[in-house]
């Protein structure tokens, strides 16, 4: 990334295959814009998200990480999003304790029919993370080129 450009956050979005990834596709086919700094990683279910992945993203310099899954009660695997929700609650309180701003992480439920919600969520999340500025606390300098 060239240095003279204005700083924009780098955001990793983990999306479950059944609801949120499809919701993101719907946002796309509906041409609902959201910033290009959101990059999506497809996982089968929100419960596949190991908290380690989030820490890894921050370590490597991500400024925000968001997890999107099916609405409670609508998980393709019945209960996966409940596990995800609990795990994220624990992780977020740890991050909080470590001094990582709460706004850098988020869990949002987006169904396959909610393209507009997906775009709105990403716009809002990018706005929040942009306001928080660069993630300096968890970024590992050794990982920077």
């Amino acid at each position: 990334m060239s240095m003279n450009r204005e700083w924009t956050p780098n955001i990793v979005a983990f999306c479950c295959n059944w609801c949120s990834y499809a919701g993101a596709d719907l946002a796309g086919s509906g041409r609902m814009n959201y910033p290009a700094n959101v990059k999506i990683i497809r996982i089968p279910c929100s419960c596949r998200l190991n908290p380690m992945f989030i820490l890894r993203a921050f370590q490597r310099g991500a400024d925000g990480v968001i997890l999107c899954g099916c609405h409670p009660g609508d998980c393709h695997y019945s209960t996966g999003n409940y596990y995800a929700r609990r795990r994220m609650t624990v992780l977020f309180s740890l991050l909080d304790y470590m001094g990582i701003e709460r706004g850098r992480t988020r869990v949002e439920w987006v169904s396959a029919a909610e393209g507009a919600k997906f775009a709105a969520t990403m716009n809002d999340f990018v706005k929040t993370v942009t306001e928080l500025g660069e993630n300096k606390k968890l970024g590992d300098l050794r990982c920077k080129k």
Binding site: K39, I41, G61, C143
Partner: peptide, 19 residues
């Protein structure tokens, strides 16, 4: 681990995006 979505596969994706 989950075949097709292994820890190392997802970690590699994270690394590539955050490079």
């Amino acid at each position: 681990d989950l075949k097709g979505f292994t820890n190392s596969q997802i970690m590699s994706e994270v690394d590539a995006i955050c490079r």
